[in-house]
Design a binder for these strands. Structure first.
Lengths: 194, 194
DNA sequence: AAGTTTATGGACCGACCGGTCTATTATCGT
DNA sequence: ACGATAATAGACCGGTCGGTCCATAAACTT
């Protein structure tokens, strides 16, 4: 052991998270990060290795700190309540006064340059994984209260998923939270209540 | 009049459109455009003024050539048919074998760097304008066949709108067209038929 | 054919990109 | 007190960005 860090890893990661959330991956430059984190280039590279490695650390945190509610949502007993909790959770996430607008993963996943392709694909893969989880839960939960008539679990999962992404896009465009809530409510009108 | 253009403006615009569609605004570099359009920098700047000016010309074309179906959709007589035609039109647009995936305007509107803010806001404004048109048409058309019970025209417009954006995001991630069609079908299950 | 006007090729610009490298500084164990 | 070790500051790298400029080339008018 020798000279200790002059910064708190948690703090600087949180700062980096905000920047990536606001600006996406590509549009966030090293100096953006350096300013926000209060580090020099050397320290950043010493501690995190590269911009991309830092980004994945940030994604990890994002999922833990901001997407955690998804697990709670999946644990709900009926399809409607699962969907409700997911969608309302998203509206809270997007419009939060303390948070940047939109969704960090979406922001990054839609940036489309050649060199970030692998990164994009990884994020898409994550998303698809969650969609499959959702489908399976709908399948199970539809034993208690059915899905809207005519809708398979797969359809339902894709639909909810599509709405989640759509709401993130609208949020990024300044769509007010209250309006987003009404969208959720409208979307679930035909979903049987417990 | 003097020396005439050596290129066809329509052709090069179409080439530029494809590039912007694939890569978004920011991620498209001058040399990407130059390669695709077969022009030199001088010709491009002489003819179009700047990258941003060129982009707006491209957006214009995009709306004319690829978003034209929206007007036909709005002319449908019932809410359900309006929504159907809009949503199915989008799935065709996104998955078209000849077209890049996703939506040109969405790709550009989600890029989030400081210097392209004004551009983003303009695209968001366009989107909101269309949402309002849709709302008004739902209002009118609900006199013939009602909206799903409990849904206002504004709710319905926002919901459809949200789905449109969501489908574009999924398409960009490689979501298959057939699956997208099923999402549309599921979304409209509770919408009264003519 | 001369002169005017426009389009083209390509060198050039400063700014910024992500990333590396070296020299220095600070703190540990001994 | 004195290495050993790790973190810092900051110069430096080649490459790319969007954009400008000037000299040349080509087609119009007269």
């Amino acid at each position: 052991m020798a000279r200790p860090r002059e910064f708190d890893e948690d703090e600087v990661l949180q700062a980096a998270l905000r920047v990536f959330w606001e600006k996406g991956y590509e549009s966030t430059s090293l100096s953006d990060l350096l300013d926000a984190m209060g580090l020099t280039k050397s320290s950043l590279y010493q501690a995190f290795g590269s911009k991309e490695a830092l980004f994945w650390r940030v994604v990890e945190r994002y999922q833990r700190d901001f997407l955690g509610f998804r697990h709670a949502a999946l644990a709900e007993p009926t399809p409607r309540r699962i969907a409700e909790r997911l969608l309302y959770g998203m509206t809270e996430l997007h419009g939060g006064e303390m948070n940047p607008v939109g969704c960090l993963e979406l922001n990054a996943a839609l940036a489309c340059s050649a060199e970030t392709e692998p990164l994009r694909q990884e994020l898409v893969r994550n998303r698809e994984l969650f969609r499959l989880q959702l489908r399976d839960r709908f399948e199970e939960a539809s034993a208690t209260v059915p899905l809207p008539p005519g809708m398979t679990a797969d359809d339902a999962a894709s639909l909810i998923f599509s709405l989640i992404q759509g709401l993130a896009v609208l949020a990024k465009g300044g769509f007010p939270r209250e309006a987003a809530r009404k969208v959720v409510q409208a979307a679930l009108l035909s979903w049987p209540e417990a």
